[in-house]
């Protein structure tokens, strides 16, 4: 006699995949590292949106942050490039195949120091890449040196005080042309999820600067990138809701202070104002807010800027719709008559 045990129905998303299909390898980062929380959000977002993981490609540079793509989406290709130069690898790969849904993970050292040049030019091109900066203010993998996003006066574990002013990657991204800019905190699950989902739906470059504390080298008293500091100084400028295109979009419109942004794929980004008068479609206003917040010692988070109308890099280059990588020979090698004509002109 046998008993049949019916397993509980497997929970799957809209394309029939379970959440395991979105997991990565086991993390080798420190316990409590903010980066691990971000990886979890990435897994949840791609799972919940029902994205085919094999259409996603992960890019990163060098550093603790750049290791994290190995810890989510095992079914997606990944490229761990050289220090600070993830943008160029991503650019090349995305030109080869414009169907790639690209997510890049970088750190504050990788982006704001060695990679600042590539970061700037990436922004100029509006490449449809999700660019996450896992920002902890220190170089973790080389054991705790200040990065260029460390705040003035912030203290290292060794007692060294940072005497150089920081780069604000969000302000720079705004200035240099990003079409989606957000700041979040690895400890704010709800906000980060909504922002990530909006970035996945955005056609253009999304810069998400996530304050992601380094528990080993920068989570102490005197650090401005610690969990405790963020809990005290995190000032969300808005509350973000994301309604994916495949869900009932006719959500109830709450009273006043709400801005709806229709994303390229039809999804809805609902931005609810919180206290202050903040408009994420007004670039100059956002820049002003960022500067003022810095003076007040606040870290403003939320969607800081969104512009869904700019052409992306593929449009700028006027490329064919199909991936260049798989165009057949007949479309990439001109016929003999063309060579003969060119030769004739050179006689």
């Amino acid at each position: 006699m046998s008993t049949t045990v019916t397993p509980p129905p497997r929970k799957v998303n809209r394309i029939g995949l379970d959440v395991l299909s979105y997991k990565g390898g086991k993390t080798t980062l420190c316990a409590g590292c903010g980066h691990n929380s971000i990886s979890e959000r990435v897994i949840e977002c791609f799972y919940e949106l029902g994205v085919e993981p094999w259409m996603v490609t992960k890019f990163s540079g060098i550093g603790c942050s750049s290791k994290s793509p190995a810890y989510f989406l095992n079914l997606a290709h990944g490229f761990n490039g050289v220090h600070g130069r993830m943008p160029s690898v991503a650019t090349g790969a995305m030109l080869a195949n414009r169907r790639i849904l690209a997510i890049g993970v970088s750190g504050d050292g990788d982006t704001a120091s060695i990679g600042i040049g590539q970061f700037m030019h990436l922004l100029r091109r509006n490449l449809p890449l999700i660019y996450i900066i896992e920002n902890n203010g220190v170089y973790g993998l080389t054991k705790g040196q200040f990065s260029a996003t460390a705040d003035l006066g912030s203290k290292l574990k060794t007692g060294v005080i940072n005497d150089q002013p920081p780069f604000d990657c969000c302000a720079l991204a705004l200035e240099w042309g990003a079409t989606f800019v957000a700041r979040s905190f690895s400890g704010d699950k709800k906000q980060l999820q909504a922002i990530l989902k909006a970035a996945i739906s955005h056609r253009g470059l999304s810069v998400i600067d996530v304050i992601s504390p380094c528990t080993t080298f920068n989570d102490h008293e005197g650090s401005t990138k610690s969990y405790a500091y963020m809990k005290d100084h995190d000032e969300p400028v808005n509350e973000v809701d994301f309604v994916p295109h495949f869900e009932d979009i006719s959500v109830e419109i709450p009273e006043g202070g709400v801005q709806d942004v229709r994303m390229h794929d039809g999804s809805l980004l609902r931005i609810k104002k919180l206290g202050r008068d903040f408009d994420p479609t007004d670039k100059l206003r956002s820049l002003t807010e960022l500067h003022q917040a810095q003076q007040r010692g606040e870290v403003i988070t939320g969607v800081l800027f969104v512009d869904t109308g700019k052409p992306d890099f593929h449009d700028m280059l006027h490329m064919v719709e199909e991936p260049l990588a798989t165009l057949p020979e007949s479309r990439v090698r001109p016929p003999k008559a063309v060579l003969d004509q060119l030769m004739e002109e050179l006689r």
Binding site: T57, F79, G81, V82, R85, P87, S88, V89, A90, T91, G92, A93, M94, L95, A96, N97, I100, G117, Q118, M120, H121, L317, H318, M319, V320, E321, P323, L324, A325, T326, L327, R331, V332
Partner: peptide, 29 residues
């Protein structure tokens, strides 16, 4: 379609131009 079966990018420097070339080659271009 009148569209290009190629992409040409003048990069910001040679660090980027080779990174793009390698990324593109990796992805099948």
């Amino acid at each position: 379609t009148g569209r290009a079966t190629y992409a040409v990018v003048q990069a910001e420097d040679e660090l980027a131009s080779i990174g793009m070339a390698i990324g593109a080659g990796w992805a099948g271009a």
